[in-house]
Computed example of a mutant assay.
Amino acid sequence: MPRPLRHEGSPGSDPEDGDLIYFVPWGNLGFYYDASGIGFSDQTIHLGRYDASREELSRFDGQEVRVEVSR
């Protein structure tokens, strides 16, 4: 991230597969592809969702990835 996101007052998040999140302690983006066993955290901010299979995601392994907002 070019700069930290403001997160004061964020409610945190309860992750589900497909969630795109901001991880506050490291200041980076992340996503859940297997959220089983992971509970609520006030250190993650839910930003959106993605629609991809594990196989599709595996193509990005070791690659630089760019995330853009679409409407």
Rank of each mutant, 00 (worst) to 15 (best):
M1T: 03
P4C: 12
L5T: 07
L5P: 02
L5F: 07
R6F: 15
H7L: 06
E8T: 12
E8W: 13
G9M: 01
G9N: 03
S10H: 13
P11A: 13
P11Y: 11
D14Q: 08
P15V: 12
E16Q: 10
E16C: 08
D17C: 09
G18P: 01
G18D: 04
D19W: 13
I21R: 04
Y22G: 05
Y22F: 09
F23K: 08
F23E: 03
V24G: 03
V24I: 15
V24Y: 05
W26E: 14
G27E: 05
G27I: 02
G30S: 06
F31S: 00
Y32K: 04
Y33L: 09
Y33S: 10
S36F: 02
G37S: 11
G37H: 11
I38C: 11
S41D: 00
S41E: 00
D42C: 07
Q43I: 04
L47D: 01
L47P: 10
L47C: 01
G48M: 11
G48N: 07
A52R: 13
A52C: 03
A52K: 08
S53Q: 05
R54F: 12
E55H: 10
E55V: 03
L57S: 07
L57C: 12
S58F: 00
R59W: 12
F60A: 14
D61R: 09
D61L: 15
Q63C: 13
V65P: 02
R66M: 07
R66N: 09
R71A: 15
